[in-house]
Each structure stands twice: as structure tokens, then as C-alpha cells.
Design a binder for these strands. Structure first.
Lengths: 190, 190
DNA sequence: CACTCAAACTAACAAGTGTTAGTTTGAGGC
DNA sequence: GCCTCAAACTAACACTTGTTAGTTTGAGTG
């Protein structure tokens, strides 16, 4: 038993790619089946519903971000260092889930059962993020600006990483993280 | 003849809101009709197809951005000033089209006929943007970093504006533009 | 009053939707 | 050689999809 990849996981991986290209609603179970080389009905030997696939993609990612943020929040680093760790967190997760990040960003509203839970995780993440920035402002590490504007500005960039990391395979990930941290924290003005 | 609002325009406005909430594919013509207080078939007295609605939303916005970029590109301002004008352009268009920007960002792949044209406009916009940054690096106005990383970083934030401008009605738009320009250009480090 | 016309309606269509039930296939263990 | 079982299949379901055709309504105009 080396790399135990279940059929279910293969289906989810394939679905994730299709969801990125066309969005959850536009992908039919027959599209997914064709991509898997089987008939739509056969998918149900492995998954419970289309919804379940979306849930599997989104919730695990959301929880990964939550876990990462919890570690950073509790750490003893400076604000600037914490922000760099957040950049690192996003680069890391996004690199390993470029397709899934599309669903996390764009298809969460179709979660139904788990929608509330997802929204709760996201709200908490943004709150933790803004708290870190506010602490940095209080301690004079960060300039006096609207903390929410700063948070949304940085987070928007990090949330869009999935769109252009695939195009930048040549770039070193350490270098990308460094580059991004510099631009987001120190600006671009000479 | 004061404010001539055609029925077609009302339908497009309503559709734009629904598309933001659920995405183009998940909104049915019956959803749209219900929101308009009529039956689905009646919509076709005013619009040609579902596709046409999407086209009307996206293409006009994309062309507005193209026009704005053309003006900025041809202007004689410094690089930093040009970047500030780009921020202003995005804040301005997004403020007047918070719903439509969602489709521009997330539903463009369903354009079909006009897809190629849209992609061409977007490619040109990003190219112009990156050229401005490269010019700024050459003239030592901007630090020596990867121009594309800078472009995508700034553009990601500007493209996400539609998500949080609606939440920030209290904030002054001039102030927001100023705030954003500062954060994006000068960073947040004290 | 008759006429026009925008804008709604009802009814229906062919195709596509997610999903279920029951069946077949074929490799591996006893 | 039989049994098991994961994993595919066929067939069908109830419903939804975008869209068309033809009809009705009702306000405004001559």
C-alpha cells in the first residue's frame, strides 16, 4: 500500500478542475462523468451527491486556512512577521490547491447545508486578520490607516493567487512569497 | 422625456443583481422573471436571449475600462500619478456598477460569441498596466521588483473592490481612493 | 369607436438536469 | 470453481432548462 488514491478522490480532483473552468453550476454530472471516462450514474457508487463534492472541496480548504490563522494568531511574532506568515500560508495552500481555490472563492454560495458554517469560518478569519493589523497600528509597527481597507487590500491579492500562480511555474515559491510580502508591506514607491 | 428607462434596461439591472448573488449559470430565466414580476416568456419581448443579457453587462464594462486605460496611457503624468489614476478609474466604475463587476470577474467564461473579444480587451488592459509599471521601474520611480507580480497584486485588489465597496457606504470615495493608493503604492510599514 | 402597439399572458417544445434502481463485469481470495 | 465486491453499466424517473408561437390586455391616438 503506497499511494492509496481512492476513486472518490479522483472524482473530486477532476470535479475541482471542471469547477474552476466553468463554475459549479455550469458543470453537470454528465460533464464530470465524461471527464472521468464513465457514465454519470456510476459516479454515485463513490459520491453521495453533487453538493457533497463541493462540500469536500470547500470545507477542507476553509478549515486549513482557519488552522493556519490560529497558529499565527497565537504565535509571539511581531505584526509584520505575522503578516509575512499569512502571505506564506496563502501561497502554500494555493500552490497545492490552485483549482480548489476557485471554488472556495466563487462557488461557496452553493453550499446550502454547510453555507452557514463556511460563512462563520470566513468571518472569523477576516476578524483575526483585522485584529492583527489593528494591533500593529496600536504598537506603531504599521502606519495609521483604515485597518479594514488594509485587510481587504492584502486579502484580495492573496485570494486571487490561484489565478496567476499556475502561470508562474517558473518562479521560485520562496521568491514569490518574499516578493509579495515586500510589495504588500513596503509598497512599490522608491 | 426625462429619465427614459426602457423595460430592457430594467431587466438587465435585475439580472445583474441576481448574477452577482448566484452566478450566471445558477440564475434561470424563471428566477429573473419572478424578480421582475412577470412570466419567463414575457422577458423575450425585450431581450433576445440569456446570453445577450450577460453580453450587455460584461462588454460595456470591459470597454469602459479599456477607454479609461487608453486615456491614462496617453497622458503625460508620472508613473505614480498614472497608478493613482488607475485606482481612481476602478473605484469610479465599481461604485457605479457594484453588481455588474461580479459578472465581469466571474461569469466572463460563459460569453461564448463574445468570449474572444473580451479576452482580447482584458489581455490588452493587463499589458498596458504592466507597461506602465515597467516604465516606472526604468525611470527609477518604482523599486526593482517583478513588474507582473506588482501588476497582479494591485489589479487583484482593484478587481475585488466590488465585494466590499457596498459594505463601506459610509466611507468617502475620495478618501477611499486616497487610502487605497497609499496602501498599494507606499505600503503599510511605518 | 376603431386601430395600434408595447407588453404581458398561456401552452408547449425538446433537451438537459441530478439522481435512483437494478444489473453486469471482472479481478482476487478461498 | 465458487464467492465476494468494487466499480462499472443500462434504463428510467420527475423535474427544470431556455426558448418559441400564438393570444390577450389595456392605454393612447386618429
Amino acid at each position: 500500500m503506497v499511494t492509496e488514491v481512492t476513486r472518490r478522490e479522483e472524482i473530486i480532483v477532476t470535479a475541482t478542475k471542471l469547477f474552476k473552468e466553468k463554475g459549479y453550476s455550469a458543470v453537470t454530472m454528465r460533464d464530470l462523468a465524461t471527464a472521468m471516462g464513465m457514465k454519470a450514474a456510476s459516479l454515485y457508487n463513490h459520491i453521495n451527491s453533487k453538493q457533497d463534492i463541493l462540500k469536500a472541496i470547500i470545507i477542507s480548504l476553509a478549515e486549513e486556512f482557519t488552522q493556519g490563522m490560529d497558529l499565527i494568531k497565537k504565535s509571539k511574532h511581531s505584526t509584520i512577521e505575522k503578516l509575512k506568515l499569512i502571505v506564506e500560508l496563502h501561497v502554500h495552500i494555493t500552490t497545492n490547491n490552485t483549482y480548489g481555490m476557485a471554488s472556495l472563492n466563487n462557488d461557496w454560495m452553493h453550499l446550502e447545508d454547510q453555507l452557514e458554517y463556511y460563512l462563520q469560518l470566513r468571518k472569523k478569519y477576516e476578524q483575526d486578520f483585522v485584529d492583527i493589523i489593528k494591533t500593529g497600528i496600536s504598537s506603531s509597527e504599521i502606519i495609521e490607516t483604515n485597518a479594514e481597507v488594509v485587510m481587504f487590500s492584502i486579502l484580495s491579492t492573496l485570494r486571487s493567487l490561484y489565478l496567476w500562480i499556475p502561470k508562474k511555474e517558473e518562479i521560485n515559491l520562496k521568491e514569490l512569497t518574499q516578493n509579495l510580502s515586500d510589495v504588500l508591506i513596503y509598497g512599490i514607491n522608491k
